[in-house]
């Protein structure tokens, strides 16, 4: 599915750690890896030099895995330049690290991460690096909602990341609590929740089984973002892979935004995947 993977590198440590996910995905899928640094106009020579050093380090590290690598350095607006490269090189997926502003600004409004996620004509994996002590995730938490788009690509991405690191996958679903007017909230046991598992999640698990990935899972009702972070904190998961939010700004204001909440509170690295692969 992924033949060409691009990872955006800059002067920050988190872009270097993000690149490791891209390197491992390229290694397991046999894809070609593009290391891309876009120097912005106002950048100092020292900053550019730091980013170039980072590219060198990643290049050397990735080179040991035997994958095909190409390093690109451009000047200009990062979103526009990466967009051009994606179109030119027919990139399948772009990895980019989130920045502090993505966490602090509500709904990522106007951030580079959000612009990349909206504008690029390929899949985008936004990575938030939270914990630099867990280089190879052993347990990956996959929060799923009832309706999932691009199931095949999501499963493929999850399975390949899990294969690359030899990880186990834990599927987590946080449905709305069942309640009746006169009875209030009705308690359901895990087995009863399992019986109510939405079809898309069952399909996701079915696809995952094809890749022979060790997996488990559970459903816990509650506020989605809060339940995901509690699950990640309590079970010490090493990585979370979740879909990008599809809630509108208004809906986010009224109902909250689980992705934003997890992005802000994640105890481990987080990949927000926006799949575009249609083929």
């Amino acid at each position: 599915m992924y033949k060409k993977i691009l990872t955006a590198v800059n002067e920050h440590l988190n872009s270097e750690v993000t690149a490791k996910y891209a390197v491992n995905l390229a290694r397991i899928t046999g894809a070609k890896l593009y290391l891309c640094f876009v120097a912005e106009q106002e950048m100092t020579a020292a900053t550019i030099s730091r980013a170039e050093e980072a590219i060198k380090r990643i290049f050397l590290e990735a080179g040991k895995t035997g994958i095909e690598i190409e390093a690109l350095t451009e000047t200009g607006d990062p979103v526009r330049k990466i967009g051009e490269i994606v179109r030119r090189e027919e990139i399948d997926i772009v990895f980019a690290s989130t920045r502090r502003e993505d966490i602090e600004r509500r709904f990522f409004a106007g951030t580079v991460a959000r612009r990349l996620s909206i504008n690029l004509p390929c899949s985008v994996a936004l990575v938030r690096i939270a914990h630099t002590g867990r280089m190879r995730p052993k347990e990956i938490l996959i929060p799923l909602k009832a309706r999932i788009d691009h199931i095949e690509e999501r499963v493929y991405f999850t399975a390949k990341i899990a294969q690359a690191f030899g990880s186990e996958v834990f599927i987590f679903h946080s449905p709305e609590a069942v309640s009746k007017f006169f009875h209030g909230e009705i308690h359901l046991t895990p087995i009863e929740w399992e019986e109510k598992l939405p079809k898309d999640i069952t399909d996701f698990v079915g696809h995952l089984r094809r890749y022979d990935i060790a997996h488990a899972g559970r459903s816990v009702p509650g506020s989605i973002g809060r339940m995901i972070t509690i699950e990640a904190f309590s079970k010490r998961h090493d990585l979370i892979i979740m879909g990008a939010s599809q809630r509108s700004m208004l809906s986010s204001i009224l109902r909250g935004n689980p992705v934003e909440e997890v992005l802000r509170n994640t105890p481990c690295d987080l990949i927000i995947l926006k799949p575009r692969y249609e083929g």
Binding site: R226, T229, F233, P267
Partner: peptide, 23 residues
């Protein structure tokens, strides 16, 4: 290698703050 809420101590703090017994 881990600071703030991403530390093991932060884990206890987050769970202590976020976990609720419910009604």
């Amino acid at each position: 290698f881990a600071t703030g809420m991403q530390t093991e101590f932060g884990r206890i703090a987050h769970l202590t703050g976020a976990v609720e017994a419910g009604l």
